[in-house]
Design a binder for these strands. Structure first.
Lengths: 191, 191
DNA sequence: CGAATGACAAAATATGATATTTGTCATTTG
DNA sequence: CAAATGACAAATATCATATTTTGTCATTCG
């Protein structure tokens, strides 16, 4: 019996082989030895399938971040580590496997805003969690942690948004990020 | 006798009429009542022409910013006004004349990095100028003004980079920016 | 002689006829 | 009867060919 997971696995394989433009529902069905009609019993449309593929990818990519957000590190260190990891993950994916990174970026482009936005919300909540703990232990002077989390996420857009992947090749990108993070620390650390 | 300026004027007109994909060098030449060979006496290639068109547009768009950077406003106010204006100009252009904005964005995409980068440098220097004066009058506590200017420019990427034009439609975009600017102020204002 | 032309080849792009892909659903299968 | 099939129409993509566009340059123009 065919599961949604199996379809996503095959989809990922086929995507890796053929790229996002050439991959058809029939290709994915063939890979699974079923008719393409069967795939449509699990996904309303190809876009729906794309959304599911992208969602799973986003979740995997950012899995390590949840661990950091919930770690025992002191909030100041944890916050920096969280952002550095976010950046490192993205840059690593983009450099190591550029076709796949491009593939997922292209799929994500074609998605309804909401799918990606929900994912961003999860990340922003993780930042919020760190800020709240920093506020409790009186190292961060933050009024509205949820709002600040969003502000920090958007302030670092250049360093994690796939639209800026081109700029990540720069030799100074990491240094740039360090300067920005220093600014952030100055703004949110107590006194 | 045909001038480079005249060509750019016609190019802009034709671009407005036909859009960036349909505009040909022959169209521009026709608009000027010259042969297209003549256009090539002023520009080495079509890309070169694109670069010139884009450059002029960028300069025009950001002209008001130089005035603000050099104004007599106290640095704290001036800095905020400078960023607000940058944002307002971009958003206004993108909303009022979306086809043209898209046109120039498309042309800019196809350009060598350098052309756009030079323009960004000018803007970052304007920020630096404000920071230097703020430092002199002891309202800003900034170590390296040039570096901080760059940091501020990149921190606000989401609010002025054309790649993010889609996000500018959000009802809360201005509020978001205000939060970010509050963060910046907290970081750079003395004490 | 500097500025512009227009004929030309090479490159890029539009066109449209053909083939594939998407999405549905009545039918089949286990 | 739930799960899968495969035949089908409509929407898209592909590909070979026709047309346009780019870029050059020997020639003309003023």
């Amino acid at each position: 019996m065919l599961t949604t997971e199996q379809i996503l696995n095959s989809a990922e394989d086929v995507l890796r082989r053929y790229g996002p433009k050439k991959t058809t529902v029939v290709d994915i069905a063939r890979d699974l030895n079923v008719s393409h009609g069967t795939v449509y019993r699990h996904f309303k449309s190809k876009s729906d399938l794309h959304a599911a593929i992208t969602k799973r990818w986003l979740e995997r990519v950012t899995a390590p971040l949840a661990d950091i957000a919930n770690s025992e590190l002191v909030p100041a260190v944890r916050l920096r580590k969280w952002f550095e990891t976010l950046m490192d993950i993205k840059v690593k994916k983009a450099i190591d496997d550029p076709e796949m990174f491009a593939s997922y970026s292209i799929l994500a482009q074609g998605l309804p805003e909401q799918v990606v936005y929900e994912h961003l919300e999860v990340l922003i909540e993780q930042i919020e969690h760190i800020l709240v703990e920093g506020k409790q232990s009186e190292v961060f002077a933050v009024d509205d942690c949820a709002q600040m989390a969003q502000t920090l996420f958007f302030a670092t857009t250049r360093y994690h948004h796939p639209l800026h992947v081109k700029e990540w090749g720069s030799a100074t990108i990491k240094e740039e990020f360090n300067h920005l993070f220093a600014l952030i620390e100055k703004a949110i650390h107590k006194q």
